[in-house]
Design a protein around this nucleic acid. Structure first.
Lengths: 118, 118
DNA sequence: TTTATATATTTAAGAAAATTATATATACAA
DNA sequence: TTGTATATATAATTTTCTTAAATATATAAA
């Protein structure tokens, strides 16, 4: 599983957003969903995904519930009220950040004196 | 100097972009420019900025030239041809990534059966 | 039947990247 | 002489991610 170098710092927010949207998801499902939504551009590594889930759980932002489906164990995660609120804040912050980034990455405005002079 | 957690992974690209745009900049100037362009949202820490500049230099992506201005030393950096090319590629990749992120962060489309049924 | 593929979680080891903190040095204004 | 702004450098630490490997089940193909 390869991934874009740019996810760094955004992973937690992406996970919170997906859980806010879907109420209940398991780890594997989250990684599939991110791949789908990104047109295969972003592929979460499990080594990154699961530790983030455990950390969010330890911080009381989500709760886990294990179920056995088709003979395989699945751990469903869902946001606590604090998790819902953090998702709201983080998504908003990240949206603002991407707007800022856009401004920085915009081609430099080439102000031509000839326009002003003509 | 505090900073948004989201810069992680984008710092190198931001620096390359600014240098591609301005031909010649020194470290302090880069940090000021990022603060200005981001409306003070992003504040680079020097502990992050300078090591990135040294690494880019060691990779042959930029060259440094020290000048003394007003009794203080300044190190001006400018891109090599390889640096110019990498800036082009990285900016393009990051723009694509922000578009992808936007799609993920978009509020979930709420498809109502009632619309289809009415 | 055994091989490959897909599903699903866990975790260790290491690398990369950033934060925090500190040091050094000059100019200038209060 | 004190504080603020300018300017670079770097060490120590922490965070975060990648890479890799282990475990386990279901199912389809060969």
């Amino acid at each position: 599983m390869a991934s874009s170098e740019f996810i760094k710092g955004t992973l937690k927010t992406i996970i919170l957003k997906l859980l806010a949207e879907n109420k209940q998801m398991y780890g594997y499902e989250i990684s599939q969903k991110v791949e789908e939504l990104s047109g295969s551009e972003i592929k979460l590594t499990y080594g990154a995904l699961y530790p983030v889930l455990y950390k969010l759980e330890s911080e009381g932002l989500l709760v886990a519930e294990t179920e056995v489906v088709d003979g395989r164990a699945r751990k469903y995660y869902s946001l606590t009220p604090q998790g819902v609120e953090l998702a709201r804040v983080k998504v908003s912050e990240l949206q603002k950040f991407t707007e800022t980034l856009k401004n920085i990455l915009l081609p430099a405005p080439k102000i031509s004196l000839e326009i002003w002079g003509s």
